[in-house]
Amino acid sequence: MDSKKWDKIATGVLYFIAGVMILILAFLLIFILWNGLPHVSWHFLTSPAKSFQSGGGIGIQLFNSFYLLILSMLISIPISIGAGIYLSEYAKKNWLTNLVRTSIDILSSLPSIVVGLFGFLVFSISAGLGFSILSGALALTVFNLPLLTRNVEESLRSISGSQREAGLALGLSKWETVLKIIIPEALPGIITGMILGAGRVFGEAAALIYTAGQSAPPLDFTNWNPFYIASPLNPLRPAETLAVHIWKINSEGIMPDASQVSAGASAVLIIAVLIFNFGARYVGNHIYRKMTGTK
């Protein structure tokens, strides 16, 4: 009787804790969306920001965020997949691979402002890239790569060893086994991790302040030549992103409608991150079902 009572109490406490967490999240979401959504319109999403007058939008910042995201994922996805495969399938257990793993763990716990300052020194100053999308993308790669690599490694490692044996016993080489059996099986996990990583990158501000810069010069959306200075695709132009924009108008914005712009931008950012999170689940499950033929 006593153990039954305690079971009930423990269950109640756990429900309470979970409920508190959900309430906090729900409160944040509702608060941000309630304040921000009324300010979001097509005009707001597409027009450039204004420094001194009201009525500015976040069009360029939104484009910058996506472009930066794509560039940084283009750099970090291949590297993280390669590194993850190495760590999970090929690395022997010795001091060197332990060192690599420890370094990755330390790298992943670096505060993002430190990564930003490192990126500023290395990419913007030493490499001469200045405040540019490319500097920002490289800094985000430093920020995101450790987590992506660990995700790839963990996804591959979660595939049972019997699958590797099955592949090898069928006369596949080790590389064929990894490429044609282990990676396809781990793909849903890998893709989920990548999309969550994308969400993290999308909302990152501190690492970008000193690398991608805090200014969003006007873009000429009719000229897509990446070498033209006002071209949206030019990777060497400074590019304030949405998250940086929110930080900036809250710290030094002097436009009359700064608080509305900030609230609207926050709502857009939150919605984008939510889309990434739900998308990750949906895409991961979808690929898993498609590959395994289960319904």
Binding site: S162, A166, E185, G293
Partner: peptide, 8 residues
């Protein structure tokens, strides 16, 4: 242990 691949 039967170890089919999780494919068709």
């Amino acid at each position: 242990q039967p170890n089919p691949f999780p494919f068709s």
